[in-house]
Each structure stands twice: as structure tokens, then as C-alpha cells.
């Protein structure tokens, strides 16, 4: 039987899951890093178990939010498939590269890139506005509930986007942060995809990549299945709230929240590079 302490841990995970899930679904990041930090620092759960649970959280968040975004046609399925193909390729290449590269240098570098990206998002007010030109087969449209308008957009700088996806796949395994943190800003700033479509499309991808990693942890028996229940329940509620927040928010507000979260991740990566945080 489970003791009182275990129930309290489960309750804490459930409550924090609501927060991580809503932020993750709203921004298309999955919410895994927030989960890891909470499990590590607040609950003292061992690093490999924290990572395994966070992967379960990302899958739950991505599937819950995905069921809403796909039905509402917010997800650009074609674009998701193109970028995901490069991400998984990057992930497999990264597994080989990781053996020979100084990981802390990459973490510090990516941390600085995130600060720069965050500043670009806050500064460039016009940069995220949709443009109609761009790749024909990948163009998309969705109904923006907040703006009461159908938004049509094209995809620009596809080559840069796929290159970034390759890098995102390669480094996310090394630095311990999901590819969404790199892909959402790239889709928005470089490929000029509206933030809402970028978040929904990234949301489709993060779950897929997380599932491949989760399968590895699962085979190794590293998933604490008892703690999976509160994780999934909390994240599910949060992710549903997150999809509503995305629909009802102004794009500019979403961009500002994303910029804040990116700066926070920049700090996290620098702390990891310095050895203060480890997972």
C-alpha cells in the first residue's frame, strides 16, 4: 500500500502538471523541462526518473492538445511531417556526435542563443505577422478565435527551417531540452508562420520525439508507473486549458510569454552548463 507521503508527492505532481501542461500546450513546447525542474528540485526525484516522467508528461500534453488542434485545423500536418523527418534524423546523428562533443559548451551556446531569440521576439513586433507568399504545398490557414478572422499564411525560408530542425534534433538529446524550444521560435521568426499555427504544429512534433525517447526509458524499466497517473491527469487538464488559452489570446501576448519562457530556459541551460543543474 502507498504511504501518506507518496500520496502527497502524487498530489504535488498533479497540481504542478496542470501548470506545466497549460503552458506547454499554449506555446507548443510540451512542458517537459518545467516538469523535470519541479521533480528534481521540489520533490528530489532522481534525475533519470524525472526525465522519464517528463517524457510521459510531454506525450500526454501533446496528445491532449493535439486532439484539439488537429480538429480545429490549427496543426499544419505537412509542415510537421517535413520538420519532424529532419528532427528524427538529427536526433539519430546527435546520438553519435554526443560522444565526441563537449556537452557543457553546447549547453552554454544554446543558452545564449535562447537569450538572443527571446530578445528578437520581444523587439520584432512585425516579424511574426503572417505572409501569404512562400512554399505553395506547405501553406496553411486556420480560424483565429481571438481575432475573429481566418488567417492564411505561407511558409518562408524552408531551407533554414529544415536545417534548424536537424540541429534541434541533434542538440536536444545532448542538452536535455526538447526540440520545441528551438522549433517554435524558428517557425515564427524565420519561417514567418503565425505563432498559433507554429505552436500547434510544434505540439504535434514534440510528442512524437518524446515517444521515441520514452520507449527507451520504458524498456529500461525507468518509468515510475505509480507516479505516471498524477502526471498524466494533471497534464491532461492543463493541456486542455492551454488549448483554450491559445485560442483566446492575442498573438502578441503569446509571443511575449514565449519570449519570457525562452529567457528562462536560457538561464536553465547556463546553469546546466555550469553544473549547477544536472539531468
Amino acid at each position: 500500500m502507498l504511504g501518506l507521503e507518496q500520496h502527497l508527492v502524487a498530489l504535488a505532481i498533479l497540481l504542478f502538471g496542470v501548470f506545466a501542461g497549460s503552458l506547454g500546450a499554449m506555446l507548443g513546447l510540451g512542458g517537459g523541462v518545467l516538469m523535470i525542474i519541479f521533480l528534481l528540485l521540489a520533490l528530489n526525484i532522481p534525475a533519470h526518473q524525472a526525465v522519464a516522467l517528463s517524457l510521459i508528461a510531454v506525450i500526454a500534453s501533446s496528445s491532449t492538445a493535439g486532439s484539439v488542434y488537429i480538429k480545429d485545423r490549427m496543426t499544419n500536418l505537412r509542415l510537421a511531417m517535413v520538420l519532424e523527418a529532419f528532427t528524427v534524423t538529427g536526433a539519430v546523428l546527435g546520438a553519435f556526435l554526443a560522444l565526441s562533443l563537449p556537452v557543457s559548451a553546447i549547453q552554454a551556446m544554446l543558452g545564449c542563443v535562447l537569450f538572443y531569440t527571446s530578445a528578437t521576439m520581444l523587439k520584432g513586433r512585425r516579424s511574426g505577422e503572417p505572409g501569404c507568399e512562400g512554399e505553395g504545398a506547405l501553406r496553411g490557414e486556420f480560424y483565429d478565435e481571438q481575432a475573429c478572422a481566418t488567417v492564411k499564411y505561407g511558409v518562408k525560408n524552408l531551407k533554414l527551417g529544415v536545417a534548424a530542425s536537424l540541429v534541434a534534433g541533434a542538440v536536444s538529446g545532448m542538452v536535455g531540452i526538447g526540440g520545441g524550444v528551438i522549433k517554435v521560435p524558428i517557425m515564427n521568426i524565420v519561417m514567418k508562420i503565425p505563432i498559433k499555427a507554429a505552436a500547434a504544429t510544434s505540439n504535434f512534433m514534440v510528442g512524437v520525439t518524446a515517444a521515441a525517447s520514452a520507449a527507451v526509458y520504458f524498456q529500461g524499466g525507468l518509468v515510475d508507473v505509480q507516479l505516471a497517473a498524477p502526471t498524466v491527469l494533471g497534464i491532461m487538464v492543463g493541456a486542455y486549458v492551454g488549448t483554450r488559452l491559445l485560442a483566446k489570446s492575442r498573438s502578441e501576448v503569446l509571443r511575449r510569454i514565449l519570449a519570457t519562457v525562452l529567457a528562462f530556459f536560457g538561464v536553465v541551460l547556463l546553469l546546466k552548463a555550469g553544473g549547477v543543474l544536472a539531468w
Binding site: I56, I59, A60, S62, S63, G66, F204, G207, V208, A210, A211, A214, A215, F218, A228, V232
Partner: peptide
Amino acid sequence: LILTPFLR
């Protein structure tokens, strides 16, 4: 849960 994204 882990199989859901593969299915997707």
C-alpha cells in the same frame, strides 16, 4: 500512452 504518438 507511449504508443499514441506513433499511431498519430
